[in-house]
């Protein structure tokens, strides 16, 4: 079943293109853990449409309550610490969406994901996109519509490009099973994203395994 934008649908919908793509990847009845699940939108969709066994992890108390309002079970935990609440191989899929660049140790959280789940699905922001590179050529760290905060107060403490992510996976012995570039309407030259994602995609989704 395809999950896409459908405003007339009474079922929950996703407005972020990367979340739609992630939702499409999850098979029916899977056990899914979403790290940094926010207000639980993705998990709600997965429960409603894929009959997934869902669980969220979120640090923010307000968002946690929003999860509960959606009927999404959620554990309050900090992704900068080991996720010792979760047993080895206890989920089919562990999702980390647009959070990797904000954790203290991206490599360690990937290892935690693959300890807990059979497969990891990561959506990452690409700091190597053309507009960001142009700004760096001008001599400054990028501040764009997509990345509006300055270098000193951004939560994105590990800006990386898609190529950097691939390198890290190789170094850590993590298999990349799939890579899907994601582009958005406002992205410059978005039709080139599939050809050269590192330069033209604003995000990418990787499916990884041990």
């Amino acid at each position: 079943m395809k999950i896409a934008h459908n405003p007339s649908d009474s079922e929950p919908i996703l407005s972020r293109s990367d979340l739609v793509m992630i939702a499409d990847m999850i098979p029916e009845n899977a056990k899914v853990l979403d790290l940094g699940c926010g207000s639980g939108r993705l998990l709600r969709v997965l429960k409603a449409r894929k009959n997934a066994r869902i669980m969220g992890v979120e640090l923010d108390q307000e968002k946690l309550i929003q999860c509960m309002e959606r009927g999404v079970p959620v554990i309050q935990a900090d992704l900068n610490e080991p996720l010792s609440l979760f047993a080895d191989a206890s989920y089919d899929y562990v999702i980390l969406s647009r959070t990797l660049q904000a954790v203290k140790r991206p490599d360690l959280i990937l290892q935690e994901m693959l300890r807990i789940g059979g497969k990891g699905i990561i959506s990452i922001m690409n700091f190597g996109q053309l507009d960001a590179r142009m700004q760096m050529l001008k001599g400054h760290m990028p501040v764009t519509k997509r990345l509006p905060l300055k270098w000193y107060d951004t939560p994105n403490i590990h800006p990386g490009m898609l190529s950097d992510f691939r390198d890290m996976c190789r170094e850590k012995g993590i298999k990349i099973l799939k890579e899907l570039p994601v582009s958005q309407h406002r992205d410059f030259l978005r039709f080139l994203a599939p050809v050269c994602p590192n330069l033209f995609a604003s995000n990418a989704i990787f499916v990884i395994s041990k």
């Binding site: 669980m55 999860c67 079970p73 959620v74 554990i75 309050q76 935990a77 010792s84 609440l85 047993a87």
Partner: peptide
């Protein structure tokens, strides 16, 4: 409370856990 949560997750229960500041 986390320890209890861990046991419940391991057992496959739906758990919501919050540490209220």
């Amino acid at each position: 409370a986390k320890e209890l949560t861990r046991l419940l997750l391991e057992n496959g229960n739906d758990v919501t856990y919050c540490d209220i500041k």
